[in-house]
Amino acid sequence: MIAVTTDGRDIDLEVAKLSGEGALQKVRPVDTHMQRVAREWGKLPTPDTSDPTYYGRPVLKEPVWHWAIPLYFYVGGAAGASLVMGSAAQLDRSGELENLMRRCHWAGIIGSALSGAILIYDLGKPSRFHHMLRVFRPTSPMNMGAWILSSVSPSAIVAAMFAQRRGILGAFGEISGVASGLSGLALSTYTGVLIANSAIPVWQESRRVLPILFGASAMASAGSIFDMFFEDRAARRVTYTFGTVGRAAELAASIALERQAGRVPHVARPLHTGASGFLWKTATVMTAGSLLLSVLPGRSRKRRVAAGVMGTLGSIMMRYGIHQAGVASARDPRATFRQQRAGHGAAELD
């Protein structure tokens, strides 16, 4: 006889236990995600018939990704942009940019390794990360991303190992360098597609800008990192130019994004209000600041570092801002309703 705990009826409690895969879950109690409703208590539950919602409850589920994902966007972006710079540097046959190239490759290797780690960390079931590569599914940007990410490190490593060699190996290294640059291009921009390919109104609405913004921001990020950490006279101008173009493009893309999303005013709301609005606006200011610093005459190290810091902060805050805006957008049923009522649902496709 197995000893069992019994209740007052002397009933084997195991009898009533839920079993099976569904049963094991521990559920977040309703009240934690209901706090907002609790605050609305007191208001009479009379619906607004002209602009109805279901008690103001969200239609969509919030993104479940936590802090690691915006960080991944940033790190991955910076790594990818570095690799792009690295493979562009191959064009220079003078050897002056060898250092830059090496640094780019290493930034790519470290960055993509870190990205992978962060990504796995964010997974609900990290032990199953490799399931990402079970299939090849072009409709899933995340699946594409997994393939991209997994192609980055090998090519970057090969490039790092052989690019400076001569002969066959060197050629192999150079081809790998170009490949790593291509995957870097993909790595730093696909994340824009990743979130644009979603039901979240603010992301979906700004889908035409997001990859550009993310790409530009990746350039700015990479530029800023090089600005801050390396003092390579030969490469300075290259990274500086790359970064500055990135900053300018990031700023332009930010403005474009706001306008894109703002085609349905309600959809852009998270960019103006709340935590997401704050992050977004500050990011823009930072990026603008770093751009200003980098285009003003004079190239002191101090100023470059300052521009780098601001640029980095701008890029990071931008990613968090976008992430938070997505969360806020999912929470707001009217964002979905108005977007679709404005003809920006499926109607837009005709």
């Binding site: 790409g215 290259v238 173009v245």
Partner: peptide
Amino acid sequence: SMGVAAAGMALAAVGAVLWGK
């Protein structure tokens, strides 16, 4: 857009290398 972004980025990188040099 990703294509555009990638192209732009590639262009920028190439430009930076050539122009910087």
